[in-house]
Design a protein around this nucleic acid. Sequence first.
DNA 1: AAGCTGACTATGG
DNA 2: GCCATAGCCAGCT
Length: 111
Amino acid sequence: MEEISFFERVYEVVKLIPYGRVTSYGAIARYLGTGGSARMVGWAMNASHSHLQSIPAHRVVNRNGLLTGKQHFDGPDVMRQLLESEGVLFEDDQLLNFDILFWDPMKELAL
DNA sequence: AAGCTGACTATGG
DNA sequence: GCCATAGCCAGCT
């Protein structure tokens, strides 16, 4: 009985991302078992507006640590600002220390 | 109901 | 190392 949609599963994972850490769309997709459908994760973020709670979508970046989804926030720099406020450093839109900050749900949650 | 869309990723040239 | 192509699949029109 799946009363929750795919989107809501994405939200659950995104909400579990620790402060100051990031993950990728593909990582979430794999954790949810949808394999290569990383697009759906991003698509879920796009629909996160319909979710009642606030989703820390700024902690989800693409596999390069690039802020590809920034245009979907209130402003083109909101996503970077949010992450910087969490102590994350950038070089333009490229996230620094991405390999260190990366939080893999499959690795962190699947115990 | 059938087709388009997309905040991705991997691969090949 | 950059550009083009293809696979992916759930939601929206």
